Amino acid sequence: MKHGFPRPRGVADGVPAEAIGLRPIPQWPEGERPRERLLRHGVGALSDAELIAVLLGNGSVGRDAVATARALLGEAGSLGRLLADPDHMPAVRGVGPAKRARIVAALELARRSLGEGLAELPRVRSPTDSADYLKARLRHLPYEAFACLFLDTRHRILAYEELFRGTIDAANVYPREVVRACLRHHACAVILAHNHPSGIAEPSRADREITRVLVDALGLIDVRVLDHLIIGHDDPVSMAARGLL
Rank of each mutant, 00 (worst) to 15 (best):
Ala101Ser: 13
Ile103Lys: 11
Val104Asp: 02
Val104Asn: 01
Ala106Phe: 05
Leu107Ser: 08
Leu107Asn: 06
Arg111Met: 10
Arg112Lys: 14
Ser113Leu: 03
Leu118Glu: 00
Pro122Ala: 11
Thr128Ala: 14
Asp129Thr: 02
Asp132His: 13
Tyr133Gln: 00
Tyr133Asp: 01
Lys135Ile: 01
Ala136Glu: 09
Leu138Thr: 15
His140Asp: 15
Pro142Met: 13
Pro142Lys: 09
Glu144Tyr: 09
Cys148His: 01
Cys148Arg: 03
Leu149Phe: 03
Leu151Cys: 02
Thr153Gln: 09
Thr153Val: 08
Arg154Glu: 14
His155Trp: 09
Arg156Tyr: 10
Ile157Met: 14
Ile157Trp: 01
Ile157Tyr: 05
Leu158Ser: 10
Ala159Ser: 08
Ala159Leu: 06
Ala159Ile: 05
Glu162His: 02
Leu163Pro: 05
Phe164Thr: 09
Gly166Cys: 05
Gly166Lys: 04
Gly166Val: 00
Asp169Gly: 07
Asp169Phe: 10
Ala170Thr: 14
Ala171Thr: 13
Asn172Cys: 02
Val173Cys: 02
Tyr174Phe: 13
Pro175Ala: 10
Pro175Phe: 11
Arg176Asn: 08
Arg176Gly: 03
Glu177Asp: 04
Val178Gly: 07
Val179Arg: 13
Arg180Asp: 11
Arg180Val: 01
Cys182Trp: 14
Arg184Ala: 14
Cys188Leu: 04
